[in-house]
Amino acid sequence: MGVRRLLLGLFHASEAWTIPDEEVERLRLDFPDLEITRARSKENLEAAIPEAEILFSWAPGEANVARARNLRWLHAPAAGIGAYLTPSVTKRKILLTNSRGVHAVPIAEHTLGVLVALARQLRTAIADQIQDGMDRERWFEGPGRPRELYGRTLGLFGYGAIGREVARRALAFGMRVIAVRRHPERPSAWEPDLLRALGLPEEEPRIDAVMGPGDLDRMLEASDAVVVAAALTPETQGVFDAAAFGRMKRGAWFVNVARGKIVRERDLVAALRMGSIGAAALDVFETEPLPRESELYTLDNVILTPHISGNSIGFWPRAMALFRANLRRDAAGLPLLNQVDIERGY
């Protein structure tokens, strides 16, 4: 294989989502066969894209992909690829890979963090601290008494890289873990090279049960806390509605770190107001950013974060380790890691 032309479209208004200079220099050192162009603006991207053979970029848009006459491989720095499935990508069958698994560690840590916060009622403690008036007695009576994660059942809706790492941490807290996934009959098969690139353990967490979508009700009825960690697909959109919340244990907790449109927000608010759902921690919403008029802001049994569960200083090292692994595979003519099934959408 001769010179490979790589275009980096990893610019952003936020520092967190802009590729660091040192990562670009490492690519130049590790892959002398790469001719690297770094776009720092939309204009740079538009000018360079016709010659690009490999594009590692935030969603470039249909107009750019249509002009990328030499493009054979498009790599996304995140797991979600809905914005990448443009007509040109699907029609030309451009190889699309994503960064599935890159966010598994921070999202898993975030998930256990909010579960601990719900159990220990840290929202109440922080509110007291802000008001400069801690009321110790409330912690010893009725609903004010803290709970434990130990011995409780955690139900996972989605058991991919994120669900796997949530389960691993929940088990360390002494929780019982069950999961629903699309194909429970298929054993978990993770490419060792992918796990090594991401720094994830090869050993599978020992969870109690993996069920199929048809067993969702059974999972909901058995769980003290439900965590949504699935991809947004036509099958999962709106799955968590009034009927689903009605199947959950009264007082159970609900956590969404996946996609907002998997949940019917109006139904969740109603369940929280009625107390059928004890509390919720939400990092994603049907409309983002969450509108200021949302009723979720008015509920004292909810923890809200602005879609930041996957954000951490570990993002770029993991994302680039995965991309470098794929660049080596590309040079060797091997199948790339995290290839997206364009028809299924993930």
Rank of each mutant, 00 (worst) to 15 (best):
A127N: 09
G151N: 02
M219H: 13
V177A: 00
Y150C: 08
R147D: 15
A179P: 05
R164M: 08
K249V: 10
A209K: 01
V226M: 05
R181L: 06
G214I: 03
R168N: 03
A258R: 00
F173C: 06
A242N: 07
A243E: 02
I207N: 00
F157V: 03
A189L: 11
R266N: 14
R250A: 11
R145N: 06
G246S: 10
A209N: 00
T233W: 15
L198N: 01
R264P: 13
Q131V: 03
A172T: 12
R182V: 09
E191N: 14
P184L: 09
D217T: 14
E148T: 14
E202A: 15
R168S: 04
A225Y: 05
D208F: 01
R176N: 03
I162V: 01
G151T: 05
G251V: 06
E265V: 10
L195N: 01
G174S: 07
P184V: 12
R206L: 12
F245Y: 05
E203A: 10
S223D: 12
A170T: 02
L156N: 03
G163D: 05
D135L: 13
G238Q: 13
Y159D: 02
R145Q: 09
Y159N: 06
G158L: 12
D224G: 12
R136E: 15
G260A: 12
A225H: 13
G160D: 07
A258T: 00
A231T: 08
G174D: 08
L195P: 01
R181W: 05
E148V: 02
E202I: 09
V166T: 02
R181F: 07
R152W: 08
R264N: 06
A125M: 03
G238V: 10
T236W: 13
R169H: 10
E148Q: 09
K261D: 10
D193C: 04
F157H: 14
R169W: 04
F245I: 13
P184H: 09
R264Y: 01
V177R: 01
R181P: 14
R250D: 05
E165K: 13
S223F: 14
R186N: 07
E221H: 03
Q237P: 02
V257I: 01
R176Q: 12
M248T: 05
Y150A: 08
R182M: 10
E204P: 07
R247F: 04
T124W: 10
G133F: 05
V166M: 06
M248G: 04
K261T: 11
R218Q: 06
V255L: 15
P201H: 10
P184I: 08
L200Q: 11
G174F: 12
A172I: 09
M219Q: 07
D135S: 15
A167K: 03
T153I: 04
A179D: 00
R206H: 12
I262P: 00
